[in-house]
């Protein structure tokens, strides 16, 4: 599907296929020790509305982006997503699914923010081709609009950019 999007992106002249803007979703549940992560997550997985009573946790993590294990395993698996879709711009992590209690979700966010995201940011940047764009943000789009019409650049943040 991403390949089709990239091919049509290039077909319509928006850039090369490698330059298409792509974001991925991933789900993660972590503990320092990967066996603990699986042990803690399994009761929630087995009984959750979407996951429960279907494929086993093992089958589901093998066949989807869900990663249950140590932070290092989440890092390694996420870095591998580029092999499927090419260099991409956004990685979304779903952290509060399956009925996890608030305290657990906050702990997961701590692990994600302290141990996973800094490493991913560093590793994704290594060997990233220079012509692959960054994700478009509001700030970058406004800056691009202002750069495109320097003489009449308005400081009105609500002005609609015209390209």
């Amino acid at each position: 599907m991403v390949r089709l999007y990239r091919e049509r992106f290039e077909h319509y002249g928006h850039g090369t296929a490698a330059q298409a803007i792509v974001g991925l979703g991933g789900q993660a549940f972590m503990a320092k020790n990967s066996q603990d992560a699986i042990k803690q997550f399994r009761p929630y997985f087995d009984n959750a509305p979407v996951y429960g009573h279907g494929p086993s946790l093992e089958d589901f993590t093998a066949q989807t982006p869900l990663t249950v294990g140590s932070p290092q395993q989440v890092i390694d698996r996420t870095l591998g997503f580029r092999d499927y879709v090419g260099d991409y711009q956004r990685q979304l992590f779903l952290m509060d699914h399956a009925g996890l209690p608030l305290k657990t979700v906050l702990e997961q966010l701590d692990l994600l923010g302290e141990e996973v995201v800094p490493v991913l940011r560093k590793e994704f940047a290594i060997n990233r081709p220079a012509d692959v764009p960054d994700a478009p943000t509001h700030a970058s789009l406004v800056a691009a609009r202002d750069a495109a019409m320097p003489a009449t650049a308005s400081s009105d943040p609500l002005a609609i950019p015209s390209f």
Binding site: G54, P55, Q63
Partner: peptide, 12 residues
Amino acid sequence: ITDNLLTGFAGP
């Protein structure tokens, strides 16, 4: 087959 009905995708 049942898993496919529940998840929307087929295992290998």
